[in-house]
Design a protein around this nucleic acid. Sequence first.
DNA 1: GTGAAAGCGCTAACAC
DNA 2: GTGTTAGCGCTTTCAC
Lengths: 343, 343
Amino acid sequence: MPSDQTTRRATIHDVARLAQASTAAVSRVLRDAYGVSDEMAARVKAAMKELDYRPHASARGMRGKTYTIGIIHPDLRNTFFPDIFAAISQMVLPTSRQMMMATSEWTSTEDVLAAMHDRSIEGIIALAPHISESKLVEAAKRAPLVLTHRHSYSPAYDTIVSDDDLGAEMVVRHLAELGHKRIVHLAPTSGRLATQLSFVTARRSNAYHDAMERAGLGGFTEIVDCPHYTYEDGYRAGREVLSRDKRPTAIFAGTDNVAFGVIQAAYELGIELPRHLSLAGYDNTQTGSLGPLSLTSVDQNPHEIGTLAAEMLLSRMQGRQASQRAKITPRLVARKTTAEPFD
Amino acid sequence: MPSDQTTRRATIHDVARLAQASTAAVSRVLRDAYGVSDEMAARVKAAMKELDYRPHASARGMRGKTYTIGIIHPDLRNTFFPDIFAAISQMVLPTSRQMMMATSEWTSTEDVLAAMHDRSIEGIIALAPHISESKLVEAAKRAPLVLTHRHSYSPAYDTIVSDDDLGAEMVVRHLAELGHKRIVHLAPTSGRLATQLSFVTARRSNAYHDAMERAGLGGFTEIVDCPHYTYEDGYRAGREVLSRDKRPTAIFAGTDNVAFGVIQAAYELGIELPRHLSLAGYDNTQTGSLGPLSLTSVDQNPHEIGTLAAEMLLSRMQGRQASQRAKITPRLVARKTTAEPFD
DNA sequence: GTGAAAGCGCTAACAC
DNA sequence: GTGTTAGCGCTTTCAC
C-alpha cells in the first residue's frame, strides 16, 4: 500500500490503478458517460472515494469543461444584486458546478469577460454590464452569455430585463398624482449610459422624460447627473439640487443607492422627508425598507431575474441555439418618502 | 497569410511561428523570465499583439501558475465586506492577477476551498470563514491562505483580525457610562461560533461578558441568539426582546446587519431610539451612517484589513514561510442611537 | 464494454 | 541567449 508522504493529489491514474480499470473508464464514470458497466462504475467510485479523488479543473479545462460558471458583478456596494446572485446559486449549485464571481468595478467588463474566457469558464451571467453591444456579441462567441439589465436583442446571447419603461413611468405617475410638478430625475447625463437605450440608465431617463410629457409636466423635466448610479453620486447631486433657492418638490433617483445619498444630503440640510421633499428610489432594497427610511421604490423581483438568468444559461450550455429574452414586470412599492407637496 | 475562419484562440505556437522564435522563448517573454534578448522580446510581443494572444489559464495551471487569487465571502448581504474587497483589489490588480470570488453562503467554506484548489488558484483570502482550525490547516497546505476575522494562530496561514475584545469592551463601556444596566448582547449562543474563541462571534460575546463584569453589571448579562449575525436574526431577536414586560434599555448587536433588524423590530413596535432604547452595532457600515439611522457602531477599518490581507497573501505567494499575524485597533463611532436611559 | 494512445497549451529542464 | 522536448491530468477517438 504505497502512499506518498507529500500530500500529492490523487489523479485519474491513481484511481484507475486502484480500481483496476483504464483511465478512460474512470473518465467515463466521472462524466456519467455511456459505456460503463454497473460493476465497473461501482469499483471506480469506490476507488475515487478511497483516494479522496477530485478532478483537476485545469486538466479538464484543456479538453472538456471546467464545471465553472462566472458571474460578473458591477457594483458590490449595491445590495440589490445579492438577491439575484442567491437565486442563480439555487439553480446552479444542484448541477454541481461552481460559481465564481468577479467584479468589473476596478477594471472593465471587457477585461473581466476576457479573464473568464482565459479560464475556460463554461458560461457567464453578466449583471447590468457596462460594455458595448459589439463586445458582448464577441464575448458570446467564446462562451454562452446571459445578460441582465440590458435592453438589447441579439441572437448571440440571452437577456432578462425588468420593464424599466414601465417602472420609471409608475414612479412619475405616482409623484404627479400626488401633485408634484418639479420632479427631478437623478441619472447619468452623458456618455452611452445616458444615450444608448439598451442601458437601463438611458431607458429609465427616457421613460421619465416621456412620462413627464404625458403628465403635462414637460416643462419641468430635469435630469441631474449621477454618472454611476452610486451613493456618492446621489449625495453630491442631492446637495446641489437641495441647496437651490427653488428646490424641486420631488426627486426620482435611478437607484436606491442614489436615493440613500439624497437622504443623507437632505438630512444634513435639515430637509424633512416627505414634508419638504418626496423621494423615490429604484430596486426596493432591504435597506430602503427599514422603518426609519421607508423609501418608496420599485421592485424588480430579483429572485425571478436570477432564476430566469440561470435557467437560460443552463439551457444554452446544453446546446440551445435560439436566443431567448424575458421581460419582468416591476412593481411600485409606495412607502413614506413620497407624499403631497408641502408648498 | 492563412487564418481560420472559426475564431480559434491563438496559442503559444502561433505566436512562436509568427515571431520566428521557439515556444520556450515566447513562454519566457510571457513570464518576464530571464534569458531573452531585448530584440527577441520585442518581436515576440509584437506577435502576441498582432494575434491578440492571451495565454490559456488552464494550460498554465497544469504546469505553473494560474494568475488567479480567490476570495471566499461569507455573506453577500453584509455591506461591510465590499470595503475589504476593494482594498484587496487595489493591491492585487496591479500584479496582473485576476480575483475570483466565491461565496460560502449556500454551500460550505470547506467546499469552496476545495473548489478553488481544484481550479489551481494561487492563493486564497478567506473573509471571516466558518470552518474548523484543522480544515484551515489542511487547506493552507494546498495554497497560500490568509484569514480575516479569525483569532487563531498557525504557522500554516496568516491572519489579520480586528481587536474584537477591545471593540466589544468599548461598546459596553460606552453604554455603561451612559447609565445603562440591562444591556443585552445579540450573538450566536450555541455551536462553535459561540464557544470557540477563534471566532469573532465568540470573541465579542466573551468580551461583552467580561466588560459587563468589570462594569459591575455581571448580574445583567444576557445574550440572545442570533445564530448567523444576519438582519433576519436581529429582527427576530429584536421582536422577542422588545416585547418583554421588562425590556433591556440597551442592545449591543454583534453586527450592523443585526442592528438593522433590531431597528426594524423597534420601529414596528413603536419603540423610539434612543429615547426608549439604545442600540449599538458593529462594523460601521455606510447604511448605519445614514442620518435617519445614525447607528452607533464600531469601525474595524476595512481598508486596512484588506490591504494587509493582500500584502500577506502576495508575500506568501512569493515564498515567505514564517507566519504573520496582525491585529487592528477598532474605533467606536458614537452616533444617535445611544443615549442615557429613559427610565 | 473496455483500454491504448494522442493531444489540449503551456512550463521547465536540458542541450546547444 | 535560444530551441527541443517531456510531460502536467485529463478527454476522446479508435481498436478490440
